[in-house]
């Protein structure tokens, strides 16, 4: 394997050819925030929270997708980087409900971001509930494209959803707003699995949250194997009050890469449905 050496915040780091700056940062123990990046999806570099400064470049570069080059000098905590990250956080926080986005609050703190400074129009809208499996609360959608990628070539190859519209009005949609049941959706829930903001949520979880009964302190998380076909997908079962309330799969599982099908994701109702 051929390698190359670049400098990150003044320290040399050697990575394999083809590595991204994000991977190089990781190797240099530099913590780089991401929202739209995931290890099991193709980078789309749209959230821009991971931007870094590459010496000699006119603009900042997205660490998640920019390939490392030999001799590159990268700054990850320069004034420009901190400023852009801060404003990106403020833009997201002022337009999207980021309350369930993991990492958002700590990042706000880290970059001193105050979304209120940029308060204005938001993407708030009613929750879409058109099936018993999962709900779509696009008030929480930061348009990271992850669900589209998981529905498309990165996992399911179903193409039931796409980004539609343009600009601030862009949103994730089926064709002509068809309900998921009328669309190509195969209810694999891989979109739910990759959603970073809780915009896509298990109906079980949504109902518990609505009722004020969602309580992570009373939950256990256990990895096991799907009871259905012979693929052997790892299921991560989140259980509250002896009921399975969310099913995911680890993105680093060699079998699933984090993705499941409708049976493993939503078809475990028989477990709790049995009469004692």
């Amino acid at each position: 394997m051929r390698t190359l050496t670049l400098s990150i915040d003044g320290s040399d780091v050697t990575v394999p050819e083809g590595a991204t700056l994000l991977e190089a940062c990781k190797k240099a123990h530099v913590d780089t925030p991401t929202f739209c990046w995931a290890e099991n999806l193709t980078p789309v570099n749209v959230c821009r929270i991971c931007v870094v400064e590459v010496e000699g470049a006119r603009t900042l570069a997205p660490a998640c997708s920019r390939k490392a080059e030999a001799g590159m000098k990268v700054l990850t905590d320069s004034e420009r980087v901190r400023h852009s990250r801060k404003v990106v956080l403020e833009l997201l926080g002022s337009s999207v409900d980021m309350s369930l986005a993991k990492d958002f609050a700590p990042l706000r703190q880290r970059y001193g971001a105050d979304p209120k400074r940029l308060a204005g129009e938001t993407v708030a809208q009613p929750v879409k509930i058109d099936n018993d499996q999962f709900v779509r609360d696009y008030s929480k959608c930061m348009l990271c494209y992850k669900c589209v990628e998981a529905c498309g070539t990165d996992a399911q190859n179903t193409f039931a959803i796409a980004v539609a519209g343009r600009g601030f009005e862009a949103s994730i949609a089926t064709e002509h707003q068809a309900s998921l049941g009328d669309s190509a959706c195969v209810f694999c829930g891989n979109c739910v699995g990759v959603c970073p903001t809780g915009a896509l949520m298990f109906k079980t979880e949504f109902d518990l949250r609505e009722a004020g009964k969602w309580d992570e302190s009373r939950q256990t998380v256990t990895d096991t194997i799907c009871p259905y076909c012979g693929v052997g997908c790892t299921l991560t079962l989140r259980v509250q009050d002896n009921a399975i309330v969310r099913v995911t799969s680890p993105s680093d599982s060699s079998v699933t890469g984090g993705h499941l099908c409708v049976k493993g994701r939503f078809g475990l109702g028989f477990v709790g449905g049995r009469k004692p």
Binding site: R48, L91, L92, G167, F168
Partner: peptide, 18 residues
């Protein structure tokens, strides 16, 4: 610019509105 932003990246999509 607000109308013509493609909507892909946060700085432009939300920034043009702000």
């Amino acid at each position: 610019f607000r109308d013509e932003s493609c909507g892909q990246c946060v700085p432009c999509r939300v920034g043009t509105v702000r």
